[in-house]
Design a protein around this nucleic acid. Sequence first.
DNA 1: GATGAATGAGTGTTCATTCAT
DNA 2: TATGAATGAACACTCATTCAT
Lengths: 202, 202, 202, 202
Amino acid sequence: MKKRSASADRICAVAVGHFSEHGYDGSSLSDIAELAGMRKASLYSHFDSKDDLFLAVFADALLEEHSFMQQCFDDEAALQQVPQQAGALYCDRMAQRYGQSPHARFLLRTVYLPPQVLRDHITGAYRALLDQLERHYAASLVHAAPWLTQPRLALYVQAYLGIIDSMQVELIYADGAALQQRHAALWQILSDSLATAAQQQA
Amino acid sequence: MKKRSASADRICAVAVGHFSEHGYDGSSLSDIAELAGMRKASLYSHFDSKDDLFLAVFADALLEEHSFMQQCFDDEAALQQVPQQAGALYCDRMAQRYGQSPHARFLLRTVYLPPQVLRDHITGAYRALLDQLERHYAASLVHAAPWLTQPRLALYVQAYLGIIDSMQVELIYADGAALQQRHAALWQILSDSLATAAQQQA
Amino acid sequence: MKKRSASADRICAVAVGHFSEHGYDGSSLSDIAELAGMRKASLYSHFDSKDDLFLAVFADALLEEHSFMQQCFDDEAALQQVPQQAGALYCDRMAQRYGQSPHARFLLRTVYLPPQVLRDHITGAYRALLDQLERHYAASLVHAAPWLTQPRLALYVQAYLGIIDSMQVELIYADGAALQQRHAALWQILSDSLATAAQQQA
Amino acid sequence: MKKRSASADRICAVAVGHFSEHGYDGSSLSDIAELAGMRKASLYSHFDSKDDLFLAVFADALLEEHSFMQQCFDDEAALQQVPQQAGALYCDRMAQRYGQSPHARFLLRTVYLPPQVLRDHITGAYRALLDQLERHYAASLVHAAPWLTQPRLALYVQAYLGIIDSMQVELIYADGAALQQRHAALWQILSDSLATAAQQQA
DNA sequence: GATGAATGAGTGTTCATTCAT
DNA sequence: TATGAATGAACACTCATTCAT
């Protein structure tokens, strides 16, 4: 992990916001430089190209998301007891975090409409993040509901990923306007289903 | 509703694909003109500006989506009997349609990352589409499960919208790779929840 | 042979002078555009890139040189009788032409220090021109001195090419300051040698 | 003559090659610095500007060429007896040297297409070198053929300079591909002419 | 002596747009 | 309706050069 210069950090800090608002194609290095308090040419003392800067920001965002996810499931492991609470911590915190974390905004927008030339790299890296989330939730749910059959477990994993997707969309699209209701509703039907499953098992 | 010339239609037809693949900022009128078999300057015989063309395509996409949605729920009204099938037709057909309808791809991508200058217009118009979907589903569900309490009805409406969101994300992000599983899982937990509700009511 | 627009011709006309004076790397499209009475961006209505323009100018220069050479040897064929006059017309006219033909200046300078990226194309095309000159002179000399042995013929061809080279250098380097003396001297020793050969044959 | 630092020497050593390959305008200080194993800014610890570096390299090249020329004619003075051998040593060695001496390549290329801003300085300095060559050859030929009339002497001097030019062109343009033949041919006709002159004198 | 950072000027190139034809 | 030509503005990027460290 290389140490980035203070200026490079400042550039990344403003770039993440600018990219997430305007997208890759809609962002200009002039604007980013100005936000960072320097001239356009100075950016090249820190990054080789626009792509290089974009990928640096993307790497930051990915790393932060990985850490955040890890933290959520670590914390949950110390608390959770019932199946309905598996994955709940990540789901809850994600919603709150989005408004505060430019990296999260950047990540979602980038993944949903990646710049053509970086598409493969971005898609691949994000796929790995989702796989990680899948493993986290599966572990958490298995721990809370060890009696779940394999097919049923797989079903809840998919449903959970779908719920996460749905909430992220709501965050991106409407800045979370209807988030609370959507969150509550989806979580409710998930809980209902888990309750049913628990009942049948008993 | 004005009649558009054949050339204008051809331009829109290629523009929708180009915009949905590259986004507003990443698309150039040169490329679109070339795809339409004409020169860049000729576009201005049909559209006043890039924005004008983009909004024309957007209007097409919105209209098509409105019609499609209407058709789905009309067809469903003639068939549906159980609550678990409310909204199912739209949900099913949407997945199949996406791969074939450039307008659907365009619509989703545009809505999630709209060009800065057209953001308000786009967001507002799409909001109306979602409201329409909400009404459609609510009516369908009420018809199939008239015994549902108001809060419970509202909950399922939100859950349904969330499921639609989730599937659309899957379509955009991964071209539907995991769509079937996600669809099945989310629909299953919705059905489970509805079954529980029905049981409690009985 | 495509017809070039009047503007494109004007651009080429000023570009040939600018390129020959500053070289490829030292020339800027801004300057060329200004000389042509238009803005930099307008150049791209006529040429795809700087390379494209440069190669167009190069093609013009090559073509003109081919024509000029052909004309010289055609004219000579109607006149020449003694071996010492073979190739003389081209040699004489070349010197006069250089000061007047920007294409000739451009060609020589470009060939001696071609832009790195176009080196192969330029070198190859010029090689063909030299081969043509070689054939012209050989034919002319053979006609005037059919009794020359093959090795001796080859020797004079090489000497002739060398003399041409030498005069071109003088033109490039010193704008022809010492051209007349150099020309006279080299032509004299060539003539002396041919006279010797003729004497031995007799 | 100041002593240059080791770093400055290394810079000059790589610059001469880079300049001769890309020309003045096509060379960047970044590239030269990298080849010299340092950063661009460090060049300014040794040279005031790009021009300063270029002129330093040019001075090196000139000096080397002067020395080389002097050495050739000194050596020749100890050996030569017949007029046909006057200037031959320099001519022969030049061809072999070019491929090995970056300074010689640099010198020729620079002289034929000098950077606009340094043109006068370069042209003047090279003119002095040619004058020196002229004196060397004249002295050598006079010594070997004291019976030559003044006009005839002047003629051979011009022819000799022309032959040198021609060979240098061949070296620059084609990296010496046809050099041997051209050299042999030109030298042959010079020798023939001198033989004729000697005969007439006798 | 060497360097990271910064910068004003300038590069070639693309853009959406206009206009006469 | 269609287009070739033109253009101002903007683009990503490179340049030689400066300066504090």
